[in-house]
Design a protein around this nucleic acid. Structure first.
Length: 592
RNA sequence: GGCGAUAUGGUGUAACUGGUUAACACGUCGCCCUCUCAAGGCGAAGAGUUCGGGUUCGAGCCCCGAUAUCGCUACCA
């Protein structure tokens, strides 16, 4: 059994149950985990009994071993009927304060642009988690940031998730008993809850302007002290507050984090994690525009929607104490937290569009098959049991098949206890190999259908007709003119892309700016053209230079159908990817 | 800088409660097949498990200490 969790095993079992109740009690590393193993079940034989005097750090399995190759005594002695089989109910094994609520999980994407692979990744994990336990998978739209809101984004998220094959039981489009599922439609709810916090003294109003806060931040940075809100507004007198309110001064509401002590929570994959309160900021809960921040909205909604397990990316670990504090401030039952490792670029940084295609639209439009994408995502972070050597030999199966599995197989075998915590690099090379495997297994008929539904769909072909019809003398010439709309690797030679009167460095810099401009653009002819011309004017690039450069990058050639229309047809995700690939290629060290 | 998390070949993962030459897949290289390229078959190189101590007959798994990487450090999520 791989030991993935360390904890101090020096507390008698009886001490365990009380720890989670009080706050802010800095618990030792593992009261609760300990209790997980000792309550409601007999202690597994293979785990040493706690000894009152021994305080040795040992490793224990995070989760009962029922699905492992070697069934634990637990699962042997206590066969449990399960909805879909599998990970014998982590909930069952958990501490007794969890009143076996039905499993409900959620993903909460933010509609700020193209649907993200990370959303599909976390979505997949949540989906599998829920379905393995006969629970519900909920989709909630976190659109509380109106400055980053993109109106087309929500629909794209729906479409992308459906494309990969994930379906949700409740959501903005399908409804459900705990709606609305769009946070912008829940502002009244948040306001009510803020009042509760204000009333019970766990939050306070803060009247500083954004500028004042920024100035404070700069000062703190200059003084090399941690940039943090100084809590000044905590000390405002009631008269002062009333006066400010009377004059209609805008304010935010902040969480009143205890000045002393610490908060400990259990991450189901890592064990207990403790944060000193001196390191937890008085987080803004309600912005001056009346919208909540993620922290408030997420806690309120998770509670109201009956979420039992919060499965989200690792980047949230640092703010989890704030969420814990909020649950406690409201007096609510806590969900369990599972922080998944972050998908990474090749350089190990958090996956980002500049270094990796992250738009699900890109994968869909480029002809990746949804099951392959899902399969690949399932490979990230482990989770699927690997065949042992003996199994490979005895069953004589092709070893690469271990890496190939379907969603139903994941439901059957995926084991959250197996997840490895190192951030996995999202490797396009292996994804392509996997996709190729899927493609080859298709029947010719299915392959044909796949082609006709994507790269050669009627809709795609029809969108191309206006670009080529006037320019052809025979139908057979279409490939001469529009090959770049059907190709993956397009890379113009330097004599094609480099303008006569420009240096390569300034040109590449300009491409970078084109890219930035286009990333922000709505994907239609006028917007694209407008953005490009605006940029060209600002930077002193003629329309001709500007467009010819981009034409070279997008089409690989100096002649092509109308550029902007071609880009519209080709799609935002793929066009931008082509530009990024161009830049990446040019930055590669050249031979000679 | 502060706080937190993480650490097995280039990449993704294995390695049962510490037990023989650290396994599988992708990638790379070579050979075979073949009109070419893929696919397929066969084979090879590539890590001694971030580093340093310790415990032990024995450590990737346990302990201590470093280091590195990533994340957070917003009226973004």
């Amino acid at each position: 059994m791989p030991a993935r969790l360390r904890f101090w095993r020096c507390f008698p079992a009886s001490a365990a149950s009380s720890s989670s109740a009080s706050w802010p009690l800095a618990t030792g590393r593992s009261f609760r985990l300990h209790s997980r193993l000792t309550t409601r079940r007999s202690i597994p034989r293979n785990i040493p009994q706690p000894h009152p005097h021994s305080c040795r750090q040992i490793r224990v399995p995070r989760v009962p071993q029922g699905t492992r190759a070697h069934p634990s005594p637990l699962s042997q002695h206590h066969p449990q009927p399960q909805p879909v089989a599998l990970v014998p109910s982590i909930a069952d094994m958990s501490e007794s304060n969890t009143t076996s609520r039905p499993t409900r999980v959620r993903i909460a994407p933010s509609p700020t642009g193209d649907p993200h692979v990370g959303t599909a990744y976390i979505g997949l994990l949540n989906y599998v988690f829920a379905k393995q336990r006969g629970g519900q998978f909920i989709l909630r739209i976190e659109d509380t940031d109106r400055t980053r809101f993109v109106s087309t984004s929500e629909q794209m998220i729906f479409d992308a998730l459906k494309w990969v094959g994930l379906t949700w039981d409740e959501g903005p489009d399908v409804g459900g008993p705990f709606g609305p599922y769009r946070q912008s439609e829940r502002t009244a709810i948040y306001r009510e809850h803020v009042e509760i916090l204000l009333a019970n003294g766990t939050a306070y109003r803060s009247f500083e302007t954004a500028e004042e806060l920024e100035a404070m931040r700069q000062q703190q940075i200059a003084a090399k002290t941690p940039p943090r809100y100084n809590g000044a507004a905590r000390h405002l007198s009631q008269e002062q507050i009333d006066a400010y309110l009377a004059e209609g001064r805008p304010y935010t509401v902040r969480l009143k984090v205890p000045l002393e002590g610490s908060t400990t929570f259990r991450d189901e994959l890592r064990g207990d994690i403790t944060f000193e309160h001196t390191n937890v900021d008085d987080q803004v809960l309600m912005k001056s525009d009346g919208f909540p921040t993620y922290h408030l909205a997420n806690v309120v909604d998770d509670h109201l929607m009956g979420i039992t397990d919060v499965i989200r990316a690792e980047e949230w670990i640092s703010s989890t104490p704030k969420h814990i504090l909020l649950y406690k401030a409201f007096g609510w039952e806590m969900p369990k937290f599972w922080h998944m490792p972050l998908l990474r670029n090749a350089d190990k940084s958090k996956i980002s569009k500049r270094k990796n295609p992250v738009s699900l639209n890109f994968y869909r439009d480029s002809g990746y098959l949804a099951p392959a994408v899902l399969n690949y995502l399932g490979l990230m972070g482990g989770g699927m049991p690997q065949l042992t050597e003996q199994e490979i030999v005895s069953r004589g199966i092709n070893t690469k098949e271990t890496d190939i599995f379907t969603l139903p197989e994941m439901l059957e075998k995926y084991d959250f206890a197996r997840i490895s915590l190192g951030g996995p690099v999202f490797d396009l090379v292996k994804l392509k190999w996997l996709n190729g495997e899927y493609l080859r297994k298709l029947s010719p008929e299915a392959f044909f259908s796949a082609m006709r539904e994507t790269i050669f769909s009627d809709a795609y072909l029809q969108s191309i007709i206006p670009l080529v019809q006037a320019r052809l003398e025979t139908l057979g010439q279409i490939g001469d003119l529009a090959d770049f709309l059907f190709r993956d690797n397009v890379m113009p030679p330097e004599n094609v892309w480099l303008p006569k009167k420009r240096e390569s460095a300034e040109t590449l810099a300009f491409v970078g700016e084109q890219l930035t401009a286009l990333e922000a653009a709505t994907w239609d002819k006028d917007s694209i053209e407008g953005e490009l011309k605006k940029l060209g004017e600002a930077k002193g690039w003629s329309v001709k230079e500007n467009f010819m450069l981009l034409r070279a990058i997008v089409s690989g050639s100096a002649t092509s159908p109308p550029l902007v229309e071609s880009m519209v047809v080709f799609g935002k995700a793929r066009t931008l990817d082509r530009m990024r690939r161009f830049l990446a290629f040019q930055k590669l060290p050249k031979r000679n």
